[in-house]
Amino acid sequence: MDIISKLYEKHASGNAKVGIDLKRDDPEDGVCKDVSTVNVWDLYVTKFLALKYAADAACTVLRVDQIIMAKPAGGPARRDQLAGMDED
């Protein structure tokens, strides 16, 4: 919570290039750093659009599957029986 609040504080002060450094080998794990100085260019917009388009693709596949399953199975149509005739 402390790291996230520090990140919000830095973004509110106008420094939008600040991110969280999560390297495991760094003794200062989880420190807010300027990502442009450590050459990290991973954008939120890229991840957001990737998830959005993945969800759209999944919905399209489900819609196509629903259309295919809604069609009746193939085979000859059942004929109407004459009145008075037994089924066997």
Rank of each mutant, 00 (worst) to 15 (best):
N39T: 03
D42T: 08
A77V: 12
D65C: 12
I67Y: 04
G19R: 00
P72Q: 02
K52H: 11
L62N: 11
S13V: 00
L82Y: 03
E87D: 09
I20N: 03
R78F: 03
P72M: 01
M69C: 07
A70H: 11
S13P: 09
Q81E: 05
R63A: 15
K47T: 03
K23S: 12
C32H: 01
K10I: 09
L7V: 13
E87W: 08
P72Y: 00
R79H: 08
E28G: 07
T60L: 04
M1F: 02
T60V: 05
C59D: 12
A16Q: 13
G14Y: 02
C59L: 05
Y8A: 02
S13Q: 10
P76S: 04
L49S: 09
V40E: 09
V38S: 02
I68P: 01
L7A: 11
D88G: 12
K17E: 12
N15L: 08
R63G: 13
M1S: 14
V38H: 10
V35K: 00
G84S: 10
D42A: 15
L62R: 12
C32Y: 04
D2W: 07
R24F: 02
K10S: 11
L51W: 01
M85W: 04
G30M: 03
L49P: 03
D86S: 14
V61H: 06
P72F: 00
L62C: 13
A50M: 10
K71L: 15
T46E: 01
R78S: 11
V64H: 07
S36L: 09
C59V: 10
L7I: 05
Q66P: 03
A16W: 08
G30Y: 02
G74S: 13
M69G: 08
Y44M: 09
V61Y: 11
D34H: 06
A55E: 07
D42W: 01
G75R: 01
Y53N: 06
R78W: 01
I4A: 05
L43F: 06
I3F: 00
L51F: 07
C32S: 06
S5C: 07
V31M: 14
Y44Q: 06
A58R: 13
I4R: 00
K17Q: 04
